[in-house]
Protein backbone atom coordinates (compact mmCIF):
# COMPACT_ATOMS: atom_id res chain seq x y z
CA UNK A 1 0.00 0.00 0.00
CA UNK A 2 1.39 3.36 -0.98
CA UNK A 3 1.27 6.51 1.05
CA UNK A 4 -2.17 6.79 2.59
CA UNK A 5 -3.47 10.27 3.15
CA UNK A 6 -5.64 11.08 6.12
CA UNK A 7 -8.52 11.52 3.73
CA UNK A 8 -7.99 8.12 2.25
CA UNK A 9 -7.73 6.55 5.69
CA UNK A 10 -10.93 8.23 6.79
CA UNK A 11 -12.67 7.05 3.67
CA UNK A 12 -11.50 3.48 4.33
CA UNK A 13 -12.76 3.73 7.90
CA UNK A 14 -16.16 4.93 6.70
CA UNK A 15 -16.37 2.09 4.19
CA UNK A 16 -15.39 -0.41 6.91
CA UNK A 17 -18.12 0.97 9.15
CA UNK A 18 -20.65 0.69 6.33
CA UNK A 19 -19.60 -2.89 5.55
CA UNK A 20 -19.67 -3.83 9.22
CA UNK A 21 -23.14 -2.35 9.70
CA UNK A 22 -24.45 -4.24 6.68
CA UNK A 23 -22.78 -7.43 7.91
CA UNK A 24 -24.20 -7.20 11.44
CA UNK A 25 -27.71 -6.30 10.28
CA UNK A 26 -27.70 -9.09 7.73
CA UNK A 27 -26.64 -11.57 10.41
CA UNK A 28 -29.80 -10.65 12.36
CA UNK A 29 -32.09 -11.51 9.47
CA UNK A 30 -33.62 -14.97 9.55
CA UNK A 31 -31.90 -17.52 7.30
CA UNK A 32 -33.05 -17.27 3.69
CA UNK A 33 -33.25 -21.03 3.28
CA UNK A 34 -32.90 -23.98 5.63
CA UNK A 35 -29.44 -24.60 4.25
CA UNK A 36 -26.32 -23.62 6.14
CA UNK A 37 -24.28 -20.89 4.48
CA UNK A 38 -26.88 -19.25 2.24
CA UNK A 39 -26.94 -15.50 2.64
CA UNK A 40 -27.09 -12.39 0.51
CA UNK A 41 -23.57 -11.28 1.29
CA UNK A 42 -24.49 -7.63 1.01
CA UNK A 43 -21.27 -6.57 2.73
CA UNK A 44 -19.43 -7.72 -0.38
CA UNK A 45 -20.87 -4.70 -2.21
CA UNK A 46 -18.44 -2.61 -0.19
CA UNK A 47 -15.49 -4.93 -0.94
CA UNK A 48 -16.12 -4.90 -4.68
CA UNK A 49 -16.67 -1.16 -4.62
CA UNK A 50 -13.43 -0.65 -2.69
CA UNK A 51 -11.38 -2.82 -5.06
CA UNK A 52 -12.41 -0.71 -8.02
CA UNK A 53 -12.62 2.69 -6.32
CA UNK A 54 -9.58 2.54 -4.02
CA UNK A 55 -7.49 -0.37 -5.27
CA UNK A 56 -6.88 -3.95 -4.15
CA UNK A 57 -4.59 -3.17 -1.22
CA UNK A 58 -6.97 -0.86 0.56
CA UNK A 59 -9.91 -3.13 -0.24
CA UNK A 60 -8.04 -5.96 1.51
CA UNK A 61 -7.64 -3.76 4.57
CA UNK A 62 -11.35 -2.95 4.64
CA UNK A 63 -12.29 -6.61 4.11
CA UNK A 64 -10.00 -7.88 6.89
CA UNK A 65 -11.16 -5.22 9.35
CA UNK A 66 -14.79 -6.03 8.57
CA UNK A 67 -14.28 -9.79 8.99
CA UNK A 68 -12.35 -9.46 12.26
CA UNK A 69 -14.78 -6.96 13.79
CA UNK A 70 -17.84 -8.73 12.36
CA UNK A 71 -16.74 -12.04 13.86
CA UNK A 72 -16.38 -10.33 17.24
CA UNK A 73 -20.05 -9.39 17.04
CA UNK A 74 -21.22 -12.72 15.67
CA UNK A 75 -19.02 -14.87 17.90
CA UNK A 76 -18.39 -18.59 17.71
CA UNK A 77 -16.70 -20.15 14.73
CA UNK A 78 -17.90 -17.43 12.35
CA UNK A 79 -14.39 -16.11 11.89
CA UNK A 80 -13.12 -19.28 10.21
CA UNK A 81 -15.95 -19.35 7.69
CA UNK A 82 -15.74 -15.61 7.08
CA UNK A 83 -11.96 -15.61 6.69
CA UNK A 84 -11.83 -18.59 4.35
CA UNK A 85 -14.77 -17.35 2.31
CA UNK A 86 -13.58 -13.75 2.32
CA UNK A 87 -10.03 -14.58 1.26
CA UNK A 88 -11.15 -16.95 -1.53
CA UNK A 89 -13.56 -14.30 -2.73
CA UNK A 90 -10.90 -11.58 -2.55
CA UNK A 91 -8.31 -13.60 -4.50
CA UNK A 92 -10.77 -14.41 -7.29
CA UNK A 93 -11.90 -10.78 -7.41
CA UNK A 94 -8.27 -9.71 -7.62
CA UNK A 95 -7.57 -12.01 -10.60
CA UNK A 96 -10.68 -10.80 -12.41
CA UNK A 97 -10.01 -7.16 -11.50
CA UNK A 98 -7.46 -7.02 -14.32
CA UNK A 99 -9.64 -8.90 -16.79
CA UNK A 100 -12.96 -7.10 -16.69
CA UNK A 101 -14.11 -3.72 -17.92
CA UNK A 102 -16.23 -1.13 -16.17
CA UNK A 103 -19.47 -2.73 -17.31
CA UNK A 104 -18.40 -6.19 -16.18
CA UNK A 105 -17.78 -5.58 -12.50
CA UNK A 106 -20.64 -7.92 -11.63
CA UNK A 107 -18.54 -10.79 -13.05
CA UNK A 108 -16.02 -10.28 -10.22
CA UNK A 109 -18.79 -10.46 -7.68
CA UNK A 110 -20.40 -13.60 -9.14
CA UNK A 111 -17.12 -15.49 -9.35
CA UNK A 112 -16.08 -14.13 -5.97
CA UNK A 113 -19.31 -15.30 -4.36
CA UNK A 114 -18.79 -18.79 -5.81
CA UNK A 115 -15.24 -18.83 -4.43
CA UNK A 116 -16.62 -17.63 -1.09
CA UNK A 117 -19.08 -20.53 -0.96
CA UNK A 118 -16.42 -23.05 -1.99
CA UNK A 119 -14.11 -21.76 0.74
CA UNK A 120 -16.87 -21.91 3.32
CA UNK A 121 -17.76 -25.50 2.44
CA UNK A 122 -14.09 -26.46 2.66
CA UNK A 123 -13.97 -25.05 6.20
CA UNK A 124 -17.26 -26.76 7.07
CA UNK A 125 -15.86 -30.11 5.90
CA UNK A 126 -12.65 -29.47 7.86
CA UNK A 127 -14.48 -28.49 11.05
CA UNK A 128 -17.14 -31.20 11.01
CA UNK A 129 -14.72 -33.71 9.42
CA UNK A 130 -17.73 -35.04 7.53
CA UNK A 131 -17.45 -35.06 3.72
CA UNK A 132 -21.24 -35.42 3.50
CA UNK A 133 -21.47 -31.66 3.98
CA UNK A 134 -20.13 -31.34 0.41
CA UNK A 135 -23.63 -32.28 -0.79
CA UNK A 136 -24.53 -28.65 -0.23
CA UNK A 137 -21.82 -27.27 -2.53
CA UNK A 138 -23.91 -27.09 -5.74
CA UNK A 139 -26.82 -25.47 -3.90
CA UNK A 140 -24.50 -22.91 -2.33
CA UNK A 141 -22.91 -22.22 -5.72
CA UNK A 142 -26.32 -21.52 -7.26
CA UNK A 143 -27.09 -19.14 -4.41
CA UNK A 144 -23.63 -17.60 -4.81
CA UNK A 145 -24.18 -16.90 -8.50
CA UNK A 146 -27.56 -15.25 -7.86
CA UNK A 147 -26.58 -13.22 -4.79
CA UNK A 148 -23.21 -12.38 -6.37
CA UNK A 149 -25.00 -11.06 -9.44
CA UNK A 150 -27.19 -8.88 -7.25
CA UNK A 151 -24.39 -7.49 -5.07
CA UNK A 152 -22.15 -7.08 -8.12
CA UNK A 153 -24.73 -5.03 -9.95
CA UNK A 154 -25.20 -2.96 -6.79
CA UNK A 155 -21.45 -2.29 -6.64
CA UNK A 156 -21.31 -1.48 -10.35
CA UNK A 157 -24.22 0.92 -10.00
CA UNK A 158 -22.56 2.51 -6.98
CA UNK A 159 -19.29 2.97 -8.88
CA UNK A 160 -21.02 4.61 -11.82
CA UNK A 161 -23.06 6.91 -9.59
CA UNK A 162 -20.32 7.87 -7.16
CA UNK A 163 -17.41 8.78 -9.41
CA UNK A 164 -16.56 12.03 -7.70
CA UNK A 165 -17.44 11.09 -4.18
CA UNK A 166 -15.40 7.90 -4.58
CA UNK A 167 -11.69 7.98 -3.92
CA UNK A 168 -10.95 11.44 -2.62
CA UNK A 169 -7.81 12.64 -4.30
CA UNK A 170 -7.90 16.24 -3.17
CA UNK A 171 -5.75 17.67 -0.44
CA UNK A 172 -6.94 17.14 3.12
Amino acid sequence: MKHTSLRHLTYMAVLTAVALTIFVIEAQLPALAPIPGIKLGLANIVTVYAVFALGPGQAAGILLARILLGSLFAGGMTIFYSLAGGLCCYLVTLVLYKLVGGKQIWVCSVMGAMAHNAGQIAVAVAITRTPGVLAYLPILLVSGILTGLFTGLCAQFLLSRLPKAGPPNGRP
Partner: peptide, 23 residues
Protein backbone atom coordinates in the same frame (compact mmCIF):
# COMPACT_ATOMS: atom_id res chain seq x y z
CA UNK B 1 -30.58 -23.73 10.51
CA UNK B 2 -30.61 -27.39 11.55
CA UNK B 3 -34.06 -27.00 13.16
CA UNK B 4 -35.46 -25.38 10.03
CA UNK B 5 -34.17 -28.22 7.89
CA UNK B 6 -36.99 -30.22 9.42
CA UNK B 7 -37.59 -33.93 9.07
CA UNK B 8 -35.48 -36.01 6.74
CA UNK B 9 -36.30 -39.57 5.82
CA UNK B 10 -34.45 -40.51 2.65
CA UNK B 11 -32.76 -37.35 1.48
CA UNK B 12 -29.19 -37.37 0.22
CA UNK B 13 -28.53 -33.97 1.77
CA UNK B 14 -27.65 -34.30 5.45
CA UNK B 15 -28.88 -32.18 8.36
CA UNK B 16 -25.97 -30.02 9.42
CA UNK B 17 -25.44 -28.05 12.62
CA UNK B 18 -22.16 -26.25 12.05
CA UNK B 19 -21.74 -24.67 15.51
CA UNK B 20 -22.05 -28.07 17.17
CA UNK B 21 -20.28 -29.92 14.36
CA UNK B 22 -23.26 -32.27 14.17
CA UNK B 23 -24.16 -34.00 10.92
Amino acid sequence: VCVHQGWISNSVAPIVCLPNQLV
